[in-house]
Computed example of a mutant assay.
Amino acid sequence: MKALATKLAVFTAVTLISALPVLAGENGMGMSSGDNYQKDECLLVAQTCRDSVDTIQQRIDRLSKEIGKGTSVYNGDELKRLNSQLQDATRTLEMLISNGA
Rank of each mutant, 00 (worst) to 15 (best):
L20P: 04
K80H: 15
N36E: 08
Q85T: 02
N27V: 03
E78I: 05
K2T: 13
Q38G: 06
A19Y: 07
L20D: 00
L93T: 10
L23R: 14
G30C: 07
I67A: 00
G68D: 01
I67N: 06
R81Y: 06
Q47D: 11
Q38E: 15
I56K: 10
R50H: 07
A101V: 12
L79R: 13
A19F: 11
K69F: 14
G25F: 04
I67D: 00
G70M: 13
V10F: 01
T90L: 02
N83T: 09
Y74Q: 00
S98L: 00
T12H: 12
L20R: 10
V10M: 05
N99E: 05
V73E: 03
M1A: 14
N99P: 05
D51Y: 11
K7S: 11
D54S: 09
K2F: 10
T90Y: 09
D35S: 15
C42I: 03
K69S: 04
Y37N: 10
T15E: 05
I97K: 09
A19K: 07
R81K: 09
G34L: 12
V14L: 15
D61M: 10
V22H: 13
A24E: 09
R91W: 05
M29G: 15
K7L: 12
S33M: 08
V10L: 04
L63M: 01
K65F: 15
S64T: 07
L79S: 12
N36R: 08
L20W: 02
L44G: 11
L82M: 06
L93V: 04
V10Q: 06
N99V: 13
